[in-house]
């Protein structure tokens, strides 16, 4: 077993276990914490794949931003000590059936398919921020100037929208 495999197993175990805990925990604040672990483990996977920049974003934006936002809203809308109601058995059975069926179908399909293997060892290769930055503002092939602008508009719109929606009305 290579060190990579060990690393992978640790990360994926964390991801799987804490994902399940996130969706089953009856204390909402704990669920948010478990989500944080999942996200951090995902960042670990990105590091393994040598996407350092993406991993950094994952840590700062997801773990740092979104989870904090979620925790804020939990504090605003729920009583922290309270346990969440358990969903009805019928609902859980149906949901589990749908999820299991979907998961099995997908996993089965993945295992059946022979992916072409292009890379065996890329431990030396790194994606530098220089490349990313150039691609981000390039307008040629493999350039992302337009999506970049679009996404910035989207972020602006989301910001304004969030403020408008959450603002207290006078009436």
């Amino acid at each position: 077993m290579t060190s990579n495999q060990i690393m992978f197993f640790i990360f994926s175990a964390v991801i799987v276990i804490f994902s399940i805990l996130t969706v089953s925990s009856r204390r909402i604040l704990r669920a948010a914490t478990f989500l944080l672990f999942v996200l951090v483990a995902t960042a670990g996977l990105y590091f393994m794949l040598r996407f350092n920049f993406l991993a950094a974003i994952q840590l700062t934006l997801y773990a740092g931003g979104i989870v904090v936002l979620i925790i804020f809203s939990i504090l605003l809308t729920s009583q922290v000590g309270q346990k969440l109601e358990l969903p009805s058995v019928k609902k859980r059975i149906f949901a589990a059936f749908a999820a299991l069926a979907g998961g099995l179908v997908c996993i089965f399909a993945i295992l059946q398919y022979n992916f072409p293997i292009a890379v065996t060892d890329l431990s030396t290769e790194r994606t530098t921020i220089d490349d990313i930055g150039k691609a981000m503002i390039s307008t040629g092939k493999y350039g992302y100037a337009l999506p970049f602008e679009v996404i910035s508009i989207l972020l602006l719109a989301a910001m304004i929208g969030a403020i408008i929606i959450a603002k207290k009305r006078k009436d």
Partner: peptide, 11 residues
Amino acid sequence: VATIMFFVGIY
């Protein structure tokens, strides 16, 4: 791993 995570999210 991604699939499991996905369907756990669905659940």
